[in-house]
């Protein structure tokens, strides 16, 4: 999303305030929630504090994202170096094939192997988040005009200098776009983690679906949507220009 000119930080700020405000003030919104769900006894999700759920959601997503960015970028750099080039076709092929794997299926397959709880979800999210990061880093580095690299070498730069001062800066918009895709997918997939026993913003939704309480669903859904919008607009502010 391209933000308006003028105050690019406004959008993330607004979404963020709505998000935190929503977590804090949800219990004062009983009347509108009652409209959605007139029959149930409780309409405000109170089993766990919403702010705690938000915190857990953010923790899982950011740990997974951090890991997949580090591992993904390092792996992509490694296979584009002279020594690791043998692995390039395989890694590129797997990264593009892996994108066709649905996140739910990946999460579902990770649970039997890794078990229920927070750690398996972090691992599953990290593995799945790796793919866009690797693919975009590869595309970014491979997309650089060979002449640019030649020129840098002609100026007497070492391979390390070329990587840090030429290749990474030129590839960074594409890499950041990959990270953005990866994080957006992870926020959504982490919510699905509530179905496998992780406690996060997906929890009110699952509780609502199970108990037939629409008000719970609305709370969870609105907060997750706000979180996704906050993070996405944050990327729009910090790294404008590229959308997935």
């Amino acid at each position: 999303m391209n933000e308006r000119h003028g105050a690019p930080w406004l959008a993330p700020l607004c979404w963020g305030i709505l998000l935190v405000g929503g977590c804090l003030l949800m219990r004062f919104l009983e009347a509108p929630l009652r409209l959605v769900e007139p029959d149930s006894r409780a309409v405000v999700f109170e089993r766990v504090d919403l702010l705690t759920l938000l915190g857990r959601h953010l923790l899982v997503v950011s740990v997974a994202a951090l890991l997949s960015v580090v591992v993904g970028v390092v792996a992509a750099i490694a296979v584009t170096r002279e020594k690791g080039r043998d692995f390039l076709p395989l890694v590129a092929q797997v990264a593009s094939m892996g994108q066709t794997f649905p996140p739910v299926a990946v999460l579902a397959l990770a649970v039997p192997v890794l078990g229920f709880g927070t750690v398996p979800i972090i691992v599953a999210l990290m593995l799945y988040g790796l793919l866009p990061v690797v693919r975009n880093t590869l595309a970014g580095i491979e997309g650089i005009d060979p002449a640019v690299r030649e020129a840098a070498r002609g100026m007497g730069m070492t391979s390390r200098q070329i990587l840090r001062q030429v290749e990474l800066p030129l590839a960074s918009p594409v890499i950041v776009a990959g990270i953005r895709t990866s994080v957006t997918i992870n926020i959504a997939t982490a919510a699905l983690g509530a179905t496998v026993g992780a406690s996060n913003l997906g929890e009110p939704i699952i509780a609502g679906i199970v108990n037939g309480n629409t008000a719970y669903i609305v709370q969870g859904a609105v907060l997750i949507a706000l979180l996704a919008l906050t993070v996405d607009s944050l990327f729009g502010w910090l790294a404008p220009g590229h959308t997935g």
Binding site: T214, G220, I224, A225, A228, L229, D232
Partner: peptide, 20 residues
Amino acid sequence: SILNFLQTIPSLALFGLLLG
């Protein structure tokens, strides 16, 4: 902008929001 906005909302949330 609208289509991008829709795509950003997590699937679980969108399915949930449409229930009501």
